[in-house]
Each structure stands twice: as C-alpha cells, then as structure tokens.
Design a protein around this nucleic acid. Structure first.
Lengths: 334, 334
DNA sequence: TTGTATGCGTTATCAT
DNA sequence: ATGATAACGCATACAA
C-alpha cells in the first residue's frame, strides 16, 4: 500500500494543515481559548471535515489529568452495589469523566492491586467500597471511601446508618411492636453500617421497645438465625413481634426461615430490612426497608473527589435515609 | 518549596538514573526483553525502591494500544446487565485489560456519543449491548455486539435464544401442560432475543402444545397482559396451563397479575421466564427460567474482541442455555 | 547486548 | 492574537 504511515485517526497537525494555521491555534480553538473569529471558523470547519477528536491520552500525558475515575466495588450482582455504581456512572458522565470499574470480589489483595493499578493508570481519583483494613493508598491520590472511614484525611460517604437503625426501631414501635429483635451479619471490620446496631438500640430505648439480638460473624452459618428463631418459638408463637435486619438480604433469608416455621409475615411478626433493594431494580421493594440514598451518595462522592484541592475534606458525610413500606410490615390504611 | 518540578510519581528516567543505566535498558527490563543479568538486577532494584510504575498513557500514546475496553450497557440495575458486566469485568481483568463502563439508559443518542467518546479515548475495543439501529461505529474500531447483529462483519454474542424458547416449550410439555401462552414485550428492533418467540412456537409444534400469544410493543401498557389473562379466565379457570414469558421481569409481573386474579402458580398455571435472574444475585431463582450463560457470553465477547486481527470473526455466536426450576413450575419429585 | 536519538499528540512558553 | 518550539513519559529504530 505504499506508505503505511497513518491509516489512523486525524491529529491536531492534520487539522492545522487543512485549516492553514498553526498547531497552537488549533489547540486554542479546541480548548475554547480566545482566537480570532476567522481563524476559529477555518479551524472548526477543518475539525468537522476531518472528524477530528483530541487524543485524551496525549492530553493526559501533558496535563497530568486524565478525566478518569476508578471505582472499586466487591461486585455488581448485589443490588446495592449495582445501584451505587449505576448512580456513580451517571454522576461522572454528567461531569465528562469516565469510569474505570474494578470488581474486587471482597478480596483485599485484589483491592490493593487495583489501587496500585489505578495509580499507574493515572486516574484522577478513586471511589472505593473496600474491605481491606490496611489498604495502602499512597500520596497524592485522591480517594473517597464509601461506608468505611479509612483515615480522617480521607472523606467517607455513607448513609446515616445510626439514624437508619433508629428509624427502623421508631417505625416498628409506631407499627405496634413491643418486643423486637435485631439480626446482623457482617464484617468484623469497623465500618459505618455497624452503626445500624447502635442506632437501633438507641431507638428501642427511646421508643420503649425491649429487644434481643442475633449477631453472626463472617464465616458463621446462616442457619444460626433459624435456630435462634426456633428457640424463641413457643406453641407456634414467636417471642418477637418485630425484626430489624441489617440489610435486605438478611431480611429475605429470615423471612424464608419464618415461613418455614409457620410464622406469618407481617401478621405475626413485622420485618424491616436495610438498603432499599427493589425487585429487578425498579419494581416493588423486596421488603419493608430503610432506603439508602444511592443517588445522593454517588453525587456526594464524586463531588468530594473532584472538588478543588484547597476545599475542606469532611472526614465523614452521612446522608439521610428514608423508610419504605414493602409488604413485610402492617402499615395503617390511609 | 523551591523547585516545583516533580512532586510526582517516578519515571523511567528516574529509574535509569538510580540504576546507572540508560533509558532503553530500563524499557527492555520492564517489557521483559533480553537484558544482561547484572543490569536487570540493578534496574529491578531501582524499580522496587522507587516503586516505579509505567505510565500507561505515555505507553498508549506510543503503542497506540491502551489495554482498555469500553463496555456499553443500558444500566446496571437490571439483573441481567449487572451479571453480564460483572462477568465481563472479570474476563477483562484476567487478561490485564481495564474496563471503562458507560450506562446508556437505552438512549440511542447517548449510545452514539459514547461510541464516539470511546474512539477518542482510544480504547482497544468496545463491547456493546445497544439499541440504536443506526449506530455508526467507524473504521478500525473493534466492536463486539451482545444480543444484536449489527452487520455480518461485527461479531454478535448471544445466548441461544431460539433453543431457549424451544426448551421452554419442551419443559412445559414435559411438566404436563397442553395449552400454553407466550408473553412478550420488547423492542421492535430486530435483535436476538426476538428468536425466543420463534423457538417457542417451534417447540410447541414439536411437543404437541397449542398456544396463544400476547405481544406488547415498547410503549404499551403492561395492563394489557392483565386484561388478556382476564379475558381467558372462565369460572376461575384459566384457558392456559402454562405460560412462557420473554424474560424474568415479564414473568414476575404476570405472576403478580395471576395472584390478583386468584389463579394459583404453579398449581393452576406454570410459568417459565428467561434470563436466570436470582434474588440478590446469588440466592434462589426469581422464577423457573431459562438461564443465560452470562459468564460464557462474557468470556466469548472478550475473546472475540481481543483476538488477533487475522482470525476469523464469526458473525453470530449462540451459547447454550439451561433450564432451572424456580418454584413456578411443578417439578416431579426426585 | 546497551546506549542514543527521535517521535507519538498535546499543551505551554516563548517570541513575533 | 498567532506561530514556532520545547517538554510530557515511553518505545524503538539505529548506532555503538
């Protein structure tokens, strides 16, 4: 084919040549800097006819800015993570940033590896939902953490977990419960969702509920909840009239257990979960639940990540949650 | 602060300087090319002490290869998309590729915009699940389409939709159904999932089922299914003993309608969906369903996208589906 | 084998 | 306001 020079995309040089101006002028036009009107038109025409696009990698090489943000989450099949990433994607797109997504499978080694990769890839920042207690971030890399405080200098964004737990207790009380239970499983790691328990206890005290708990650790068998329920079942009647579960998955599992034990939800016992998971992402709620404001959390994370370096970095931002009825509570008829 | 030169990350030059060798040697070490043993060690030590990482943007600028793939999907809240992206992420990571994710919200304009962006960002290729019938891809950009054949020269990866439809009919017949129905909603666009209908009809003929259909178009009200069911309900008995729905969402919605009409699932009517959606991504199936092999689809897409340019590009790859019981069918007791 | 020099596409600093 | 030129960090012919 003769010269195998550039079968490639047009460059700024091509535009300059076609427009009959110099490189610098083209650059100025592209970047919206002041340029003589006649020059601007010539350049814009050339850009159109060549269908020129700036090479963002060359741009990044110069500017040391890549308009790219890395997002780390355990996976996308857990609805809460999927919602969150979906909303982060929108928030970034709105600001003309692109998102590199890494799924860590809860693997601390992978988390560290991806943080390193992100450094190498020169992303402008990382939004991470991570479980590695000794994650090394290194200097000069912007990082916003979701649901876990890593250090006071790194902003953490979360739903208001304490208030969420308290709200669950308040709702149960309002719905007529007197003796309730709290079910939890989760990382031993010190993260924000752990505050749901404290908030719930606080709410129980405030609203006059007596309560019991069954707290599992990471490796524990979920059947322990079943046995706990079994132990608290006397003559077909459960000791509790309300249960708050640390998340919607836990609620779902235990509703299954309750069915198996012949305990009716919500008639015999009302159940509230946490997260705001919906069937197929946009249909009805999986269960009555404390809804995390994923959209606001996404917006806040992105905003904190991209804000000016001189701006203050709040160590922890808690965003308000709401309650949504989802058929596992006895809502009063309006 | 005196010189504000490079508070930044170390470069190859720094490594060369520390190791006392030249740039080219460092480059060779990094890229695994033959280098004298003593040199290699010196360089590797320098790399370690400086914690040097190659700048992948500079690398990309030179090599015109960025080890990045863009993925376009409508959203992440639909479980099928979430599974798929999750699996694509793993398949790419395994090959040391990173993934830029764009959510298109089914918006054809956005789809086109993101394809253009991907070009500009110099990704090595795009995996797209798109609905824009006249998407312009341009030259020299690798593209693998999921669920929709765009042109014979662009590989399309899908589950075996025809066989899936046929399998649904086969299963319904096997489970004792005689007169069944097919419910569908979806794009008027000519895409692969449309073959589910043809496969189902073929299966009905092969296995001696009579069948009826209720097919909605994109804008139609879902209540039309309800009215269809109502019309086929006589003295509390439905005309059908089996229903195949084009996907699990449709199945879920219609199971709700059936409940409302007092028709018992699976006792009065058995329902099979399509996709393989599970509660919380890893618990029980939402309904009895034809399971799409998302992992295999992801692997295949990535492999086709990244394969050597000289390799043949199959226009359409259909991957085998399986049936999974999910409580909306009367499975024989094993 | 190892070092040197040039260029990738863009931005930024200069003169003009 | 515009044009020439030098980096940015890396790869790669080419020379040593």
């Amino acid at each position: 084919m003769g010269l195998n020079k550039k079968p490639s995309v047009p460059t700024m040089k091509d535009v300059a040549q076609l427009a009959g101006v110099s490189l610098g002028t083209v650059s100025n036009v592209v970047r919206g800097l002041p340029v003589g009107e006649e020059y601007r038109e010539k350049v814009e025409n050339a850009i159109r006819t060549l269908n020129y696009k700036v090479n963002s990698y060359a741009q990044g090489l110069k500017a040391d800015r890549t308009n790219t943000v890395a997002v780390l989450v355990p996976n996308l099949v857990s609805p809460f993570f999927a919602y969150l990433v979906n909303d982060i994607s929108r928030a970034l797109t709105k600001r003309s940033y692109r998102m590199i997504l890494y799924c860590t499978s809860y693997n601390p080694k992978l988390e560290q590896e991806y943080v390193n990769l992100a450094r190498q890839n020169k992303v402008d920042g990382i939004i991470g939902l991570t479980y590695n207690p000794k994650l090394i971030l290194g200097e000069g890399l912007r990082f916003v953490s979701i649901d876990r405080c890593i250090s006071p200098s790194i902003s953490c964004v979360a739903s208001d977990n304490f208030q969420g737990g308290r709200l669950a207790a308040e709702k149960l009380a309002e719905l007529g419960c007197r003796h309730v239970a709290f079910f939890r499983i989760g990382s031993v790691l010190d993260n924000e969702p752990n505050k749901r328990k404290a908030g719930f206890e606080d709410g129980c005290r405030a609203f006059g509920l007596s309560y019991d708990m069954k707290i599992l650790e990471d490796g524990d068998d979920q059947m322990e909840w079943y046995h706990f329920l079994e132990d608290h079942l006397h003559d077909g009647k459960l000791d509790f009239d309300g249960i708050f579960c640390v998340n919607d998955v836990t609620a779902h599992i235990n509703i299954g257990f309750l069915n198996r034990l012949g305990v009716k939800v919500p008639d015999d016992v009302q159940v509230i979960g946490y997260d705001g998971t919906r069937r197929f992402g946009d249909l009805e709620y999986e269960c009555s639940t404390i809804v995390q404001p994923t959209k606001e959390m996404a917006e806040m994370s992105v905003q904190l990540l991209l804000q000016d370096d001189s701006a203050i970095r709040p160590p922890l931002v808690c965003l308000p949650v709401t309650y949504a009825a989802g058929g596992t509570t006895k809502e009063p008829i309006e």
